[in-house]
Structure formats: C-alpha cells, structure tokens
C-alpha cells in the first residue's frame, strides 16, 4: 500500500505539472534551435536561453509543486486520504526532483550531442558544458530543499534569490579557470584534475543537499 500510494502521489504531481514541463522542454528545443543557426551570436543567445529555461523551471517547480499546494489548501484534500506525512513528503521529494531531472537530462544530452555533431564547435567545450549544466541542478536542489523542508514561501523565495543571483558570479569564476578556459578549443574534452574537482564539488553539493532533505523529510510526522 505504502509504495503504491507514493507512486499515485508522484503520478498526480506529474499530471498536474505536465504543461509546465512541456513548456520548458519546448523552450529548450527552441534554444537549441537558435544554437544551430551557426553564428557566434546565435550560439551565445541559444546557450543563454537554454540555461534560462532550466533556471526558470528550477525556480518555479518547487513553488508550484510544494508551496502552492499548501497555499491553495489542496494539501487539506490530500490529508483526507489514507496518506502519512512521511509518504506525502517522500512523494513530493521524488516528484519534484524527477520533474526537473527529465528536462535537465534531456537538455544535457541534447547539448552534448550538439557539440559532438557540430564540427565548428571544438569538443573541448564539453567539459565547460558539463560544469555549467551542474549549476542549475544545484540551484534547483537548493530551492527544492528549502521548499520541501520549510514548506514556507518566504524561505523558498530566499533560496531562489540566493541561487539565481549567484549564477553570474560562479560562471565568471568558472570561465576564468585556466583548466577550462585553456582547453575550450582542444579537439577532445580535457578532464584535468581541476575540472574533475569542480564536477566532484558539484556532485557533492547535490548529494549533501538531497541527503539532508531526504533525512529531514523522513522525520516529518505531521502534515502541519
């Protein structure tokens, strides 16, 4: 019963947000289409759009899936069902993260394929691409964690502000990193120690945020 209830709740969230996810996918496809226009400006504009689509989805999803359900009192409807606070919390966590990971994963694969298929873009870009794609995922995890754990609009907005305002600064430092900057034009991706350290740091940050969120979610005993 427990597993099937969680599955039902996850499916419910997917059905409620399919339009939002579809829009972000369409935005991603449009951005990739712009990248394909084969000019430096189009490449830059398309890349920015691609990341904007991910950042917007990562900011909106936790609000609409977690906070709005509380705000609009739909959670009370769920409280009338034989669902425990832990089941609800776990379902929310899996659905929120899953709904982001699908478009994020699709865009990573699409971006990777694009770089590999285009002869005018050196494969050295792949390291930068992977490092940059990790950032919206960390930002999303931070916002989702704030929403899931606090269930407060204020804390979620604070996490969104912190996350979204730090992209520019982090991008600046990443682009200036010689291990990335110096290998962009190489014919093959260079997985140097600094690059692996950055990717490892991103993975550790994601694991830490999600692990802590999972731990705190599993300790919730009450809906309110």
């Amino acid at each position: 019963m427990s597993g099937s209830v969680i599955r039902t709740l996850i499916l419910k969230d997917w059905q409620l947000h399919r339009t939002q996810i579809s829009f972000s996918m369409v935005a991603g496809v449009v951005a990739l289409g712009v990248v394909q226009l084969r000019s430096e400006t189009a490449f830059m504009v398309g890349t920015v759009w691609l990341f904007v689509a991910l950042i917007v989805l990562g900011s909106m999803l936790p609000v609409s899936n977690v906070i709005n359900e509380r705000k609009k009192q739909s959670a009370v409807f769920l409280m009338s069902l034989p669902i425990s606070a832990v089941q609800y919390g776990m379902a929310k966590m899996v659905s929120t993260i899953g709904m982001f990971l699908i478009p994020w994963g699709a865009m990573v694969i699409a971006g990777w394929t694009l770089v590999l298929s285009r002869h005018d873009i050196p494969n050295g870009f792949i390291t930068l691409m992977f490092v940059l794609f990790g950032l919206p995922l960390i930002g999303f995890c931070l916002i989702a964690a704030a929403a899931l754990v606090s269930e407060s609009e204020g804390w979620t907005i604070a996490a969104t502000i912190v996350s979204n305002s730090s992209y520019g600064l982090i991008w600046y430092f990443i682009i200036r990193e010689p291990a990335i900057n110096g290998t962009l034009k190489s014919s093959a991706p260079v997985w140097s120690a600094p690059v692996l350290a950055i990717l490892g740091g991103e993975a550790a940050a994601i694991a830490l945020i999600l692990g802590l969120t999972f731990y705190l979610q599993s300790r919730k005993r009450e809906f309110i």
């Binding site: 039902t8 059905q15 009192q73 739909s74 009370v76 409807f77 069902l81 669902i83």
Partner: peptide
C-alpha cells in the same frame, strides 16, 4: 478543503479511485 483548480472532477474521481 480545496480541489486542484486546473483539473476536472473526473480526474479527481480517478485519483481517489486509485487510492480506494
């Protein structure tokens, strides 16, 4: 108690039926 605004009554009925 509020239902999901963007969904139909039939969707809510199917949702409850999947739990009960």
């Amino acid at each position: 108690m509020r239902l999901y605004e963007g969904m139909t009554l039939g969707w809510h009925m199917n949702f409850i039926r999947s739990i009960y």
